[in-house]
Structures are given as C-alpha cells and as structure tokens.
Design a protein around this nucleic acid. Structure first.
Lengths: 339, 339
DNA sequence: CCGCCAAATCGAAACGTTTCACCAGAAGGA
DNA sequence: TCCTTCTGGTGAAACGTTTCGATTTGGCGG
C-alpha cells in the first residue's frame, strides 16, 4: 500500500506539506504544490479513508435511507437516489445505503460509529416514527418529504398542496366543471403519507374555491382496481370530463382503459398527471403533467447537508414550486358535458 | 464521544480485553465478557469505524455498483439491491453505493482509498469495458450477470440459456407449434447484454431441436413499439399460438393489447413471461412465468464475497436453475392453430 | 548589517482501534 | 517441591492521516 509518506519522500517534502497540498488549508507555493501533485499522480496515491476519518473526524460519507420494498413509485425513487449520488460525488462525498425497513436504529448505529457524517431520509411520513430518533442525532439530517412537525430537521419536497391546486386549476381554466381524481393506493392515504394527503387537500380546496365538483378515488396498483375505479368515475351522472391521476403505477393503463371504454383522450376526457416527466412523455398519448422534480430535490438535499456540515444548522423546509408541462392530453371541455 | 477506553474503565478491564470481547478472537471468561458487554450497552458504545478500519485494514463495507439510469427493469434492480443490503447487514457489513455511469475509476478509487473491501457489480455486459479494471483490483469482486470471459472474477446469475429453452419447451409440451418472442428492447441486444442474448439463444436452439417455428421480435418499452410488435406477430399466416415475453416494461400492456385485438388469454394465445414473480402475479390475468430470482442472486453474491474475504478466491460462475410457475396463462394449443 | 515580518515548510502529537508479545497465576505431572 | 502448560488477561506498538505550534527562509526597512 502506498501512503502519504511515500508521496512525501518522492516529492522531497514533509508529510504535512503533502496533506496541506491535498486539503488546501494552508498556503503552499505553486512550485511545491505541483511537484507534490505529480508525485501523487505518478504513485497513484489515494489517501486512506479510515486514517483520514480518524484524524479529521470527517468521513466524507452521507448515509441515505431508501424505501426499497415499496414497489410503487420505483422510478421516482431511483431518480432521487441517482441525483443524490451524483450530487454527493460532486462534493467529494460517497453514499452509504440504508433501507427504510431497518428503521432508525441503523441510522443511529451508522452515525454513532462515525461511518457517515450526515443523513438523508427518503419517503418520510407525516408522523414518521423515526422522527424523534432522527432529531436526537447530532449530525445534519435532511428529510425528503415533509412531516407534520418538521421542527429541528431540514426537509425538502415538491409543494404538493400547490400542485393539487394547480392540476385542478388547469382543468377548470379549460372549462371542465366535473373532475375526477385517480389517487394513490388507499394504503398510502391510510398511513398518512404526507405528500398524498397534501396533494389531495390542495386539489379539493382549489375545486371548492372555483366551484367545481370533484370525485376522489384512491386506486390500488392493479388492473382490477383501476378498472373498478374507472367504472365508478365514468358513470354518466357524474359527467366527469377531466381526470387527474396521482398514481404512477396505473397511469400507463389509464389511457388504454379509457380507449377500451370508447372515451378518447383528450376529446372526451382530459387527463393530467402528477409524475416524472419520463413516464408522462412515453404514454400512447403523451400526458400533460406536473413533474416530480426528483433531480432537483436530490441536489437540494445534498446542498442542504453540505451547508449543515459547514456549520450552519438552519432547520428549514423547502417546498419546490410545481411545474406543469402541457403535452396535449388536456383540452377545452366538450360542449356536451352532460350528454 | 465515547471510546473503548471508557468502556474498559467502566468494566474494570484493559482496552485489549474489550476489543477481544467484541471480536471474539481470544477466549475471554464469561464473567468478564458479560461485564464488558453490560458496560458497552450501558454506555451505548459503538466502535469508531475509521479507527477500526485503520487498525485492522477491514472496513466492513461492500461497494455496490448499480445501473441507476436504466429505467427499464427497475423493479428487478431494486430487488437485487434490497436483498444485497439485507444480506450484507446479516454479515455485519454496510453497503456503499456507486453508479454504473461513473465507471470503473470510481470502483478503483473506493478500493484504493480503502473505503470498501469488496465489490459487487450489477448489470454486467458481455464485453463490459470495466472488466479489465475490475480484474486488476486485489479485493474480492462478484459480478451479477455473466460476461463473455468471466475468468478471474466471480459471477452469479440466472441461467438464461436454460430459461429460454424452458420457456419454449413449456409451450411445445402444450402442443404449440408456432411461438413468438417479445424480446427486450433492441438496444439491449445491441450492446450485447449477456442475459438477453443468452435467453434468446436458449430459446431458438430449443425451438430448433423440437422443430417448432419461432418469430423473434425485440420491443422498445413504449406503447407504439408494443403495438407494432403485436401487429407483426399476430399476422394470420404466422399462426402464433404461444407468446414468450422477456420484457418487464411492456408485459403489463401485452395482455391488455391482446384483448383489444380480440385474442383471449389463454384460450387463443398462451403467454409465458420471464420476470419477477411480483410482476407476473399482479397482471389482469396472472401470467405463467419463469422468475428472476433477485433475492437469491443477491444473497449468493454477498455470500461469495464473504468467502473471498475469508481468504478463498475461487473465481467461479454460478448459474441458477430457472423455476417456472404456472399461473394459468398457458394452456393446450387451440385445435384451429392454422385457422 | 541587523532585526523583524510574513510566507512556506516541517515535526510530532493526536485520533481510537487491533493485535502481538508478554505476564501472572492456577493446574497438572513427575 | 519444582517445572511445565495452560487460561485469562495486560501494555504498548502499530495503522495513515490531520493539524497545531514551531522553525526556517527571504525580503525589507532602518
């Protein structure tokens, strides 16, 4: 193994000088610096992470808690993870993977044993049982998803309330007076996952204000559930002309099933979804959507942690404004809404 | 921070004794051992990972290289990751996440800086450009997926060749004489991903031996591609009565689209898929399938690494026998096969 | 020519484990 | 009784960095 000592000898300087060249914490003359750098390169020196961590009490590792069992919105999760890893690398950090299933104890273990010096927790629920334990940690923590009481922790997420309002608003602007919501699976609402209920409240509140009737329908991620859901929403007497879909899993089937029922999109029914752009764009008919800005959320989460590691501990909540992309699946409501 | 010294003092023993209690590398009297354990527990002591790594040159961390950008078979990937993390924890190891996109350099960095002491690489292609670099590493490496030349490395995967044969064999046994394959996206074959071509060769070879005609059709993960694909495969003159689907992304739509074309499953067309059980079981009509044993592969991968860390370096290839579950979507071929 | 200052560099003490070599004391054999 | 052999335990030297304080150098004003 090749150590900093070897580099120092090779470059004809002291060990500490090499260290300072690497960290930039003391001024080093450009001549020396370059000589050292060349030695590092020639010897292919990589500082030992353990030794570094021991001496500096910094691991340059972020712990990331991911909900792996959830088979629901997997693409979204992956996008988060991907952007987090990339962002972390940009700040010279690595990512340690923990699963949500193993709970807060694992996070504590990882922090207590100084394996990571900051934590990102994904898929946080409104009254997440892990919250108290997370508050106890004396390292920076960022939650992806906003809990009921975010005090003492940082959180970042899409502004789902505004998104719900925005979705229904878009349809109302187009003249729709009766709007259906195909929601997330019932289980998601039951466990009070923050994002689903927030989207729902934004949705209903906006509808109320603008005087349109809404029909809310959670939907499990299966064909039969979707089928039943559509049967219900498409009943003549409801006269639904606009559909908001907040359910990545069934969105693919929604358009197909509407067709099978002789409802054309967008002529008969306008459809707007809340999902990653990648999904909305590849449907048979591209779907107008509000994007879930996974990329951005991930980057911001890492940014917040880096802030925290630099000493600031603001404990803020950052809600990202929704961004709507019209892909043509929403049009002016048909005249014969009550055919 | 609470160190091993504190524990030693609290338990009235020397530092080394505590260490030996923890590692079990020397016999310690049960009396002392229990006293030490109680102290550890009372003080909530967690050995500092950095110091540990430095002194023992073992990090107890596995690096895992994951293809995060691939939006294709995400559920499968997640299952792998999930089982790997779980298995790693069972062996008291943590998992460091690397992305495939960042290439072999990152793996080298992580190993050279002693951040991890073994590596799992997922989604390995037949002539993967990372292979040479991986062979250079002097730590245990396990590939998930078998490259053209697996020499010097360990690999584990489903036996795709046999799986292909098994799938077509199952249909032939039921009397089908003309079988279609809805394959993975064309890009997957182009980059010579091992598993797709191996499945294909097993498929065609078995069909040849048993004298049935086959119609192979790669299929991009989009509705239009699937539609075109089905149009082609369902042409009268081909008289296809059995369909093998090796494409998680479009499987959900296949049954729906068959229905739309007035082909019933399984009365008119038998369908068998290669995909995780979770996907096959939740289709409108549950689909007979050969499972992708992600759970098992992950566990085995970790097991092999642990072997390697214990000193053995066998460099073996482990192919898992396919397991077929009949869910009723495959039945005896209709009489009027050539209607 | 001297003394002083800043800039650049060096030396050595941490950091918290593991592990090797060593040491008491008890047990056992002669 | 004395020597050996265990068993259970200790002390201290690594491990490879970072970082603090000290030291050298060169330049400059007086």
């Amino acid at each position: 193994m090749i150590t900093i000592k070897d580099v120092a000898r090779h470059a004809g300087v002291s060990v500490s000088t090499v260290s300072y060249v690497l960290s930039g914490k003391r001024p080093i003359s450009t001549a020396t610096s370059q000589r050292v750098r060349r030695s590092i390169h020639e010897l292919d020196f990589h500082p030992n992470a353990g030794a570094r961590a021991l001496a500096s009490s910094r691991t340059n590792v972020l712990a990331l808690v991911v909900p792996l069992r959830t088979d629901l919105n997997l693409p979204v999760i992956m996008q988060f993870v991907s952007s987090i890893v990339t962002a972390a690398r940009e700040h010279d950090h690595d990512v340690l993977l923990l699963t949500k299933e193993s709970g807060a104890d694992e996070v504590h273990r990882v922090v207590a044993s100084a394996r990571a010096d900051a934590v990102i927790v994904m898929d946080v629920e409104a009254r997440d049982p892990r919250l108290p334990a997370l508050r106890e940690l004396d390292v920076p923590v960022v939650l992806v998803g906003v809990p009921a009481d975010p005090a003492g922790l940082n959180s970042v997420d899409l502004d789902f309330t505004t998104s719900g309002a925005r979705a229904v608003g878009h349809l109302v602007d187009l003249g729709h007076r009766s709007v259906g919501l195909i929601g997330s699976p019932p289980t998601v609402y039951e466990r009070k996952t923050g994002y689903a209920t927030r989207f729902l409240s934004g949705f209903t509140e906006c509808a109320r204000q603008r005087g349109v009737t809404v029909h809310v329908h959670p939907c499990a991620p299966s064909y039969t559930a979707l089928s039943a859901c559509l049967d219900d929403l498409l009943r003549q007497e409801l006269a639904v002309t606009g559909l908001v879909v907040h359910n990545e899993a069934v969105l693919p089937d929604v358009v197909l099933e509407l067709r099978r029922r002789d409802r054309r999109v967008p002529e008969d029914v306008s459809v707007i979804a809340l999902c990653p752009d990648a999904i909305a764009a590849t449907r048979p008919v591209p779907v107008t959507s509000i994007t879930i800005p996974a990329e951005e959320v991930g980057t911001i989460a890492v940014e917040m942690l880096m802030q925290g590691l630099r000493g600031k501990q603001p404990s803020e909540v950052r809600l990202l404004a929704p961004h709507l992309t019209d892909r043509g699946s929403t049009v002016t409501a048909p005249r014969t809404a009550d055919r």
